[in-house]
Amino acid sequence: MTQRAEHSTVMDRLAIDDLITGYAIALDDGDWPGYLALFTPDGRADYRSAGGIEGGTEEIAAWLAEMLQHFAIRQHLIVNRRITLARQDDAPGDTATVQADYLNPMRLVGPATEGEGGPTAPNYTCAGRYHFTARRTADGWRLTGVVVHEKWRQVLPAGA
Protein backbone atom coordinates (compact mmCIF):
# COMPACT_ATOMS: atom_id res chain seq x y z
CA MET A 1 0.00 0.00 0.00
CA THR A 2 1.38 3.41 -0.93
CA GLN A 3 1.54 6.38 1.41
CA ARG A 4 -1.19 8.05 -0.64
CA ALA A 5 -3.49 5.03 -0.15
CA GLU A 6 -2.64 4.87 3.55
CA HIS A 7 -3.40 8.59 3.93
CA SER A 8 -6.71 8.14 2.10
CA THR A 9 -7.62 5.22 4.35
CA VAL A 10 -6.91 7.24 7.49
CA MET A 11 -8.96 10.16 6.17
CA ASP A 12 -11.85 7.84 5.29
CA ARG A 13 -11.78 6.26 8.74
CA LEU A 14 -11.83 9.68 10.41
CA ALA A 15 -14.73 10.83 8.21
CA ILE A 16 -16.73 7.69 8.99
CA ASP A 17 -16.00 8.04 12.70
CA ASP A 18 -17.28 11.63 12.50
CA LEU A 19 -20.40 10.38 10.70
CA ILE A 20 -21.16 7.96 13.56
CA THR A 21 -20.56 10.68 16.15
CA GLY A 22 -22.92 12.94 14.20
CA TYR A 23 -25.54 10.18 14.36
CA ALA A 24 -25.35 10.04 18.17
CA ILE A 25 -25.48 13.83 18.53
CA ALA A 26 -28.45 14.16 16.16
CA LEU A 27 -30.41 11.58 18.18
CA ASP A 28 -29.56 13.18 21.52
CA ASP A 29 -30.34 16.71 20.34
CA GLY A 30 -33.48 15.75 18.42
CA ASP A 31 -31.95 17.28 15.29
CA TRP A 32 -34.07 15.46 12.71
CA PRO A 33 -32.93 17.49 9.67
CA GLY A 34 -29.36 16.77 10.82
CA TYR A 35 -30.22 13.09 11.24
CA LEU A 36 -31.62 12.90 7.70
CA ALA A 37 -28.55 14.69 6.30
CA LEU A 38 -26.36 11.83 7.57
CA PHE A 39 -28.03 9.37 5.18
CA THR A 40 -28.11 8.76 1.46
CA PRO A 41 -31.56 9.40 -0.10
CA ASP A 42 -32.18 5.62 -0.17
CA GLY A 43 -30.99 5.12 3.43
CA ARG A 44 -32.84 2.77 5.76
CA ALA A 45 -32.84 1.99 9.46
CA ASP A 46 -34.07 -0.94 11.53
CA TYR A 47 -34.89 -0.38 15.20
CA ARG A 48 -37.14 -3.44 15.57
CA SER A 49 -34.92 -5.23 18.11
CA ALA A 50 -35.42 -2.24 20.42
CA GLY A 51 -39.20 -2.28 19.99
CA GLY A 52 -39.18 0.13 17.07
CA ILE A 53 -39.77 0.05 13.35
CA GLU A 54 -37.86 -0.53 10.12
CA GLY A 55 -38.09 1.75 7.12
CA GLY A 56 -36.76 4.65 5.10
CA THR A 57 -35.08 7.50 6.90
CA GLU A 58 -38.00 9.95 6.59
CA GLU A 59 -40.32 7.45 8.27
CA ILE A 60 -37.68 6.59 10.87
CA ALA A 61 -36.95 10.25 11.70
CA ALA A 62 -40.67 10.90 12.26
CA TRP A 63 -40.93 7.84 14.49
CA LEU A 64 -37.81 8.77 16.46
CA ALA A 65 -39.10 12.32 16.97
CA GLU A 66 -42.32 10.90 18.42
CA MET A 67 -40.67 8.27 20.62
CA LEU A 68 -37.75 10.28 21.93
CA GLN A 69 -39.93 13.20 23.06
CA HIS A 70 -40.70 11.00 26.09
CA PHE A 71 -37.11 11.41 27.28
CA ALA A 72 -35.96 14.73 28.73
CA ILE A 73 -32.32 13.65 28.75
CA ARG A 74 -30.70 11.41 26.14
CA GLN A 75 -27.08 10.38 25.76
CA HIS A 76 -26.05 7.86 23.11
CA LEU A 77 -22.53 6.64 23.78
CA ILE A 78 -21.23 4.76 20.74
CA VAL A 79 -17.98 2.92 21.48
CA ASN A 80 -15.75 0.08 20.26
CA ARG A 81 -16.14 1.18 16.65
CA ARG A 82 -14.84 -1.35 14.16
CA ILE A 83 -14.68 0.29 10.74
CA THR A 84 -14.16 -1.95 7.72
CA LEU A 85 -13.49 -0.20 4.42
CA ALA A 86 -14.19 -2.02 1.18
CA ARG A 87 -11.10 -2.46 -1.01
CA GLN A 88 -10.85 -2.23 -4.79
CA ASP A 89 -7.60 -3.15 -6.47
CA ASP A 90 -5.73 -2.67 -3.19
CA ALA A 91 -7.08 0.88 -2.88
CA PRO A 92 -9.82 2.25 -0.64
CA GLY A 93 -13.29 1.59 -2.00
CA ASP A 94 -16.46 3.63 -1.69
CA THR A 95 -18.36 1.55 0.88
CA ALA A 96 -17.80 0.70 4.50
CA THR A 97 -19.35 -1.13 7.42
CA VAL A 98 -19.15 -0.17 11.06
CA GLN A 99 -19.87 -2.37 14.04
CA ALA A 100 -20.14 -0.38 17.27
CA ASP A 101 -21.47 -0.98 20.75
CA TYR A 102 -23.77 1.54 22.38
CA LEU A 103 -24.87 2.50 25.87
CA ASN A 104 -27.87 4.80 26.00
CA PRO A 105 -28.83 6.24 29.41
CA MET A 106 -31.94 8.43 29.33
CA ARG A 107 -34.27 10.21 31.75
CA LEU A 108 -38.02 9.97 31.21
CA VAL A 109 -39.99 13.23 31.09
CA GLY A 110 -41.82 13.88 34.34
CA PRO A 111 -41.69 15.61 37.70
CA ALA A 112 -38.29 14.10 38.50
CA THR A 113 -36.70 16.08 35.65
CA GLU A 114 -38.36 19.42 36.29
CA GLY A 115 -36.71 22.24 38.22
CA GLU A 116 -33.22 22.50 39.55
CA GLY A 117 -31.83 19.98 41.97
CA GLY A 118 -33.97 17.09 40.69
CA PRO A 119 -32.53 13.65 40.05
CA THR A 120 -30.13 13.48 37.13
CA ALA A 121 -29.43 9.73 37.08
CA PRO A 122 -30.99 7.89 34.16
CA ASN A 123 -34.08 5.81 34.84
CA TYR A 124 -34.01 4.11 31.45
CA THR A 125 -30.87 2.57 30.03
CA CYS A 126 -30.44 0.33 27.02
CA ALA A 127 -27.39 -1.10 25.32
CA GLY A 128 -26.45 -3.21 22.36
CA ARG A 129 -24.69 -3.07 19.04
CA TYR A 130 -25.15 -0.98 15.94
CA HIS A 131 -24.39 -2.20 12.43
CA PHE A 132 -23.90 0.76 10.11
CA THR A 133 -23.33 0.70 6.37
CA ALA A 134 -21.95 3.76 4.60
CA ARG A 135 -21.13 4.94 1.10
CA ARG A 136 -18.88 7.66 -0.22
CA THR A 137 -20.96 10.29 -2.03
CA ALA A 138 -20.21 13.62 -3.72
CA ASP A 139 -21.01 15.20 -0.32
CA GLY A 140 -18.74 12.86 1.65
CA TRP A 141 -19.50 9.67 3.54
CA ARG A 142 -23.20 9.03 4.24
CA LEU A 143 -25.05 6.24 5.99
CA THR A 144 -26.96 3.80 3.81
CA GLY A 145 -28.25 1.70 6.69
CA VAL A 146 -28.44 1.35 10.45
CA VAL A 147 -29.50 -1.82 12.24
CA VAL A 148 -29.88 -1.79 16.02
CA HIS A 149 -29.33 -5.01 17.97
CA GLU A 150 -30.47 -4.22 21.51
CA LYS A 151 -28.93 -6.60 24.04
CA TRP A 152 -30.43 -5.34 27.28
CA ARG A 153 -32.46 -2.59 28.92
CA GLN A 154 -33.16 -1.46 32.45
CA VAL A 155 -36.03 0.73 33.64
CA LEU A 156 -35.93 2.15 37.17
CA PRO A 157 -38.61 4.11 39.00
CA ALA A 158 -38.18 7.93 39.05
CA GLY A 159 -35.74 9.00 41.73
CA ALA A 160 -34.25 5.49 42.08
Rank of each mutant, 00 (worst) to 15 (best):
D31P: 01
M106Y: 00
D29R: 02
Y124E: 01
Q88D: 14
E116A: 13
W32E: 01
H76L: 07
E58Y: 00
L156M: 12
L77M: 12
T137N: 02
R136P: 09
C126K: 00
L38V: 05
Y47W: 08
Y130L: 13
W32P: 01
A26W: 01
A65T: 02
V146H: 03
L85K: 07
G55R: 09
A86P: 01
D94W: 04
D46W: 12
A72P: 06
G145L: 01
D94L: 13
V148L: 11
R136F: 03
A91D: 04
L19R: 10
T133M: 06
P122S: 11
W152G: 04
V147W: 09
E58M: 01
A138L: 07
Y130S: 07
D18N: 05
T21L: 09
G117Q: 05
I53Y: 01
L27C: 13
D89L: 01
R153F: 15
T133Q: 14
G55A: 09
P33N: 11
A112S: 15
L36G: 02
T40I: 09
G110W: 12
D29V: 04
F71I: 10
Y130G: 08
Q69P: 00
H70Y: 06
G22V: 15
A100I: 14
E54Y: 02
G22P: 09
W32A: 07
D12N: 15
G55N: 13
Y102S: 06
E116I: 12
R107W: 03
A5G: 00
A45H: 05
G30I: 00
A5E: 13
A158G: 00
R48V: 02
L103A: 12
L64T: 09
P41L: 03
Q154P: 00
Q154A: 08
N80S: 08
Y130I: 13
R107L: 11
Q99G: 11
I25Q: 10
A37I: 06
D29G: 05
A112N: 12
A26L: 04
T2K: 04
Q88N: 05
R87A: 05
L38I: 07
R142C: 02
I83R: 13
H76I: 01
A15Q: 11
Q75V: 08
P105S: 12
G110R: 03
A50L: 08
S8Y: 10
I16F: 11
A96W: 09
G128Y: 06
N104W: 08
I73K: 11
P92T: 14
R129N: 03
D17L: 14
T137Q: 02
W63M: 06
L108C: 05
T97E: 12
D46Q: 06
T97L: 00
T2E: 10
R48D: 01
D42T: 14
R129E: 04
G159Y: 10
T137V: 04
D89P: 00
D46F: 11
G30C: 03
L38D: 10
T40L: 06
D46K: 09
D101W: 06
I73M: 08
T144V: 02
I16E: 05
G118I: 10
F39V: 12
R4L: 12
R13D: 07
L85G: 14
R87T: 08
D18C: 11
G93C: 13
G30H: 00
T125C: 12
D42A: 14
Y47D: 03
A91E: 13
R48H: 02
L38N: 04
A45N: 03
T113P: 08
